[in-house]
Simulated scan of single mutants.
Amino acid sequence: MPLTALQLFKNLSDETRLDIVLLLREMGELCVCDLCTALEQSQPKISRHLAMLRESGLLLDRKQGKWVHYRLSPHIPSWAAQVVEQAWLSQLGDVQTIARKLASANCSGNGKAICI
């Protein structure tokens, strides 16, 4: 079933889910532990939000060992990608601050898990 505007805006209306989407737009691919560190949230909470985003078709995941990595889906409609892009541009300073926090925490930040 194709992504609808209502689904997209419901997903992005939650601050944690919006932060996840914008951080993935900035960083490309991140594992769950990176997102937990960056957003200072528990793994169950982040995983629940990731599941909602994945089920709506916004995210793709891949498993590498015991780690699951997430990225924005290249298959989302162009109108939805434009909404994400504009949201990212409007929050760029905040997103880059979080990305720097990941780098200083020695998280993967590049899709290569080094989580312990």
Rank of each mutant, 00 (worst) to 15 (best):
residue 60 L to C: 12
residue 93 G to Q: 15
residue 83 V to I: 14
residue 107 C to Y: 11
residue 113 A to K: 07
residue 11 N to R: 11
residue 50 L to G: 04
residue 82 Q to Y: 06
residue 54 R to P: 01
residue 77 P to N: 10
residue 3 L to Q: 09
residue 15 E to M: 04
residue 34 D to V: 02
residue 28 G to P: 06
residue 6 L to Y: 15
residue 72 L to D: 02
residue 58 L to T: 10
residue 30 L to F: 04
residue 95 V to K: 10
residue 48 R to C: 10
residue 9 F to A: 08
residue 7 Q to C: 08
residue 59 L to A: 04
residue 108 S to D: 13
residue 100 R to S: 13
residue 82 Q to W: 06
residue 47 S to P: 03
residue 30 L to Q: 08
residue 101 K to W: 12
residue 93 G to Y: 14
residue 5 A to C: 09
residue 59 L to R: 05
residue 71 R to K: 10
residue 23 L to G: 01
residue 54 R to M: 08
residue 89 L to A: 15
residue 52 M to P: 11
residue 38 A to C: 12
residue 85 E to Y: 09
residue 41 Q to K: 15
residue 13 S to M: 02
residue 108 S to A: 02
residue 28 G to V: 09
residue 61 D to Q: 14
residue 89 L to K: 14
residue 18 L to R: 06
residue 115 C to A: 03
residue 108 S to V: 06
residue 40 E to R: 13
residue 49 H to S: 04
residue 52 M to W: 15
residue 91 Q to Y: 05
residue 19 D to A: 03
residue 8 L to V: 01
residue 52 M to R: 15
residue 49 H to I: 01
residue 5 A to M: 15
residue 97 T to D: 03
residue 28 G to M: 10
residue 19 D to H: 04
residue 51 A to S: 09
residue 43 Q to F: 12
residue 22 L to E: 00
residue 34 D to F: 01
residue 92 L to D: 00
residue 86 Q to F: 08
residue 77 P to G: 12
residue 43 Q to M: 08
residue 98 I to P: 05
residue 17 R to V: 03
residue 53 L to G: 04
residue 90 S to P: 12
residue 8 L to K: 02
residue 84 V to L: 15
residue 59 L to W: 03
residue 56 S to T: 13
residue 93 G to N: 15
residue 90 S to D: 15
residue 26 E to W: 02
residue 98 I to G: 00
residue 35 L to G: 03
residue 101 K to Q: 02
residue 113 A to D: 05
residue 13 S to Q: 01
residue 1 M to Y: 14
residue 73 S to Y: 06
residue 108 S to W: 11
